[in-house]
Amino acid sequence: MGVSDWIRSWPVYRQLTGADRLGRGDAAASPQSREREPRTADADRVTASVCPYCAVGCSQNVYVGSDDGGERVLQIEGNPDSPISRGRLCPKGSASKQLVTGDHREERVLYRAPYGTEWQELDLPTALDMLADRVLDARRKGWQDTDADGKPLRRTQGIASLGGATLDNEENYLIKKLFTALGAVQIENQARI
């Protein structure tokens, strides 16, 4: 900054030389105020999403930017184009950024052994492999070929599942398909509740 710039940046100079003689407006604006811009202006992209809470289906715009830590969500707010929500969000929808960026989110697989009193970490492929063995075991233990009259049941009562109302249709489709092929029938979600 040159000297004359430095002088011009002094509020009192601006107050006395500009129209803001009381120094309550233009002359008082700080450098930060003069350079201000919404952080959404820094977004690398804006993607279209839908609020994950209730079933109204409010549209959300997700502003994504990046820094040293990688990509991150800068802001989530309503999409005015939506004929459902017209860009508006309730307090939960408005808190969506905190939902997806908050420190409450777990990032690691955790495992609690039988009779254990603490969590321990487990790597993801190992956990999946362990789980697959257990699925087959529970399936076998609960298997029923036929009912009392000898009619085919071809199912297991050893495995149950609950959840789906917060998931995508595509996910529910695969859940139902896989469990059905496994012979598991106690597949349920919030719609029963």
Binding site: V50, C51, T166, D168, Y173
Partner: peptide, 21 residues
């Protein structure tokens, strides 16, 4: 008025014991 983002979807494409898609 349903209460979860895809509770309608999870009924249409059910994760429910008595229904198929």
């Amino acid at each position: 008025l349903r209460g979860h983002a895809s509770i309608q979807g999870s009924t249409d494409i059910p994760t429910l014991y008595n229904l198929l898609p």
